[in-house]
Nucleic acid binder design. Structure first.
Length: 435
DNA sequence: TCTGGGGTCCTAGGACCC
DNA sequence: TCTGGGGTCCTAGGACCC
């Protein structure tokens, strides 16, 4: 297994494209009041600037650095070139992000997988990456598993190659901090520290049962294996997206609900656009709200059938926001869609389906029934036509109609067992033979 | 004016169904 | 009179990764 990691990728692309930045500290990330560092060039790292650090702190550590917000088109294009190079070397390539990928060397057509052969292959690959990208360096690790390849690529970066000979994996890992294990983050490391585990060697001494008790079922079994360098994960070239989301942190906290609603609406439009571009639609809409004190809340609702409609996603997002107390202010808002289906729903209403819907106040009434009504669900009522559920509970469903024939009043409430109130579904698309 | 954005995976509880 | 067992789906939150 080979792991390739482009060194200080975003900053390196900037230095490549702008010669005046070469040899100088460059910081790419959010440049607003609440931005964080995405990538720091090695010149900036000398001053202690690190990824995920607030840009404010980076500025105070290294005021003379160039602070850039990033040019993602350039990063994507360069990444595309590198991934292409890797795919030419082996059909089994798994990109992890724009700047990282695994390559299965068993499918690279090498005469053998000896240390000498893979070393020569990787040096050649690094040279080709540099040539193809106009001088970017890559760190490469090779080992008998994804885990070991990744550890190896991190060992001597930047611009280095490390090959871990088969059979030496556990000796390599033993003295290392438990944080080298993917999946051991701050919280897990702290739990381990509290029971006196700092190194992989100490982790090896823990029984599997104990690991599960300490870290939960999935995590416990998984880390028990990794501590022994047992990792048989294959390279997966094509992964299907499971969710699509957009979020934003604002420089000053939001307090105006109308503004929040319009921001959610815009985000919903972007999510819908990306869904459609990917030929996807999803059933679950989730909003994310980070309050002034950094408390993070999420609310979600699942529709009876998948959607890629901006209006549907926006409407549901605003409905979900309505249940949240945002007094005190909101620093982040986000909208996502999950439960994705890789097919697109029939566009039954043409362009009209994408008209924005005005937000209107909710109405309350009493009663009980069996049917579950989810906000955002499309409904039909004999007198009023097609609408969508604005709110539900205690046997009452409040429906908003968006057709021209809507009677006076913005919202109608019904007993939820009203025989004329039925979930509306698009007709099943018919096959050629009518089945 | 501490603390991004886009993701994945896991857990736990409740509803619901057979 | 006193309370099954398993499975699935949904929701909310949290850890983690780059």
């Amino acid at each position: 297994m080979l792991h390739l990691d482009l060194d200080a990728f975003f900053a390196a692309v900037e230095q490549r494209d702008k010669p005046s930045l070469r040899g100088k500290p460059v910081v790419v990330g959010g440049v607003g009041g609440r931005g964080v560092v995405s990538t720091a060039s090695y010149e900036a790292r000398v001053y202690g600037v690190r990824s995920a650090m607030s840009t404010r702190e980076a500025r105070s550590r290294c005021p003379h650095a160039a602070f850039l917000s990033g040019r993602f088109h350039a990063y994507r294009e360069t990444s595309r070139q590198v991934m292409g190079l890797l795919r030419a070397a082996s059909p089994l390539v798994e990109p992890l992000s724009l700047d990282e990928a695994f390559v299965d060397l068993a499918h690279a057509g090498l005469p053998d997988l000896s240390v000498e052969t893979v070393t020569a292959f990787a040096e050649d690959l690094r040279a080709r990456v540099m040539e193809a990208t106009g001088g970017l360096t890559a760190s490469v690790g090779i080992g008998t598993s994804k885990f070991i390849a990744k550890v190896a690529s991190d060992l001597r970066k930047p611009d280095a190659l490390v090959v871990v000979a088969p059979g030496t994996e556990r000796d390599l890992l033993r003295p290392m901090d438990v944080r080298v294990i993917p999946g051991v983050g701050p919280a897990t490391a702290e739990r381990m520290r509290r029971v006196g585990i700092h190194t992989v060697e100490q982790l090896e001494a823990v029984s599997e049962d104990e690991m599960v008790r300490l870290l939960g079922n999935a995590h416990g079994h998984w880390l028990y294996s990794l501590a022994r360098a047992e990792d048989d994960r294959p390279v997966v070239a094509e992964r299907e997206a499971k969710s699509v989301s957009v979020e934003g942190t604002y420089d000053t906290d939001l307090t105006d609900r109308k503004l929040m609603e319009s921001l959610l609406t815009r985000q919903a439009n972007e999510v819908a656009g990306r869904l459609r571009k990917g030929g996807l639609s999803g059933r679950t809409v989730t909003i994310k709200v980070r309050l002034h004190d950094f408390t993070t809340l999420s609310r979600s609702s699942t529709l009876p059938s998948p959607t890629d409609s901006a209006a549907t996603i926006a409407r549901l997002a605003r409905t979900l926001l309505a249940d949240l107390d945002t007094t005190g202010g909101v620093r982040l808002l986000g909208v996502g869609v999950s439960g994705l289906a890789d097919w697109v729903q029939e566009d039954l209403f043409g362009e009209a389906a994408e008209e924005e819907v005005e937000v209107l106040p909710e109405v309350e009434v009493p009663h009980h029934s069996r049917r579950t009504w989810a906000p955002g669900m499309d409904v039909e009522h004999a007198e009023h036509g097609r609408g969508w559920v604005w709110g539900s509970g205690r046997g009452v469903v409040t429906v908003r109609f968006e057709t021209a024939s809507t009677p006076p009043g913005p919202v109608r409430s019904f007993k939820d067992d009203d025989p004329d109130l039925t979930p509306w579904r698009p007709p099943e698309p018919e096959d050629e033979d009518g089945t």
